[in-house]
Amino acid sequence: MSLAAISIENVSYSYGARRALNDLSLQIEAGEIFVFLGPNGGGKTTLFRLLSTLAPLQAGKIDLLGFDLASQRDQVRRRIGVVFQSPSLDKKLTVAENMRQQSALYGLSGAAAREAEDRMMRRLGVIDRAGDLAEQLSGGLRRRVELAKGMIHRPQLLLLDEPSTGLDPGARSSLWEYLQRIRTEQGVTIVLTTHLLEEAEKADRIAILDEGTLVALDRPAALKASVGGDSVTITTRGDVEALAGQLRQIVTEEVRVMESAVRFESADASQLAPRIMQSLGDQIESITFGKPTLEDVFIDKTGRQYWREEASDGK
């Protein structure tokens, strides 16, 4: 199973003067669960639109399942399932009618269509809502119908754009159970985008995108290990810069200044703690030790906070 499901080479994409993807190259192996992680505006959605064949390729080359995206779009489309972030269900149609619509779009008719629709609605547990209008369903159920739609033609590759958006924790974990099941049982390659750090943890491999550039690509554990040691975060009521200055005299590691905290990674943080408390205790509001998280990875690779500018536009 070493065949690449997706191969991306030197892909760039611009909206006018704004560059959304910057010379991106990477490979996704068949059968893996792969996550594109990044803050909003990082280029995930643009990449998703390219992979799902909705946006034309501007520069570079993408192969999906061995087919060239630019010249064999139709072959690609037959083999991939796509679950969009904004709901693609027709709210005025029933669940069953939405499924029938999808069947027709993928060339399924008659008994084959009925069999496929029933199978998918059963598998996603929405068969008892088959006769309900899509607008009457909860967000979690709608997402399940979207998944049922996306898998109706048994694709080898499933693309999901921010699949957890608007889902409660229960619905989120059942979504992941399902994804893991189809990967194991059917060998489906699963590629999803997310801005949620805890969701990315569940992937086999993670690519971190920031400002259209690939800043890291590895298994979650390896990414976290690359940060090195524990992270120490110190918050203060006083001047952050001054605190950082004093801290640099105590520790040899690189000290970063955040909004109201300083932070550094160290292999032996517990040894340093008493010394820090001793000399800077009066300035410290809190001191936190932690195993590195994906957030630390992001900060380490980009030098910026992950959750900044959360309210900015989601392109």
């Binding site: 064949t53 489309r77 796509v82 904004s86 269900l89 027709d90 993928y106």
Partner: peptide, 13 residues
Amino acid sequence: NEGFLQSVLAAPI
């Protein structure tokens, strides 16, 4: 605007 169109455009037709 509602999103239905994207699933049609991504289909192999």
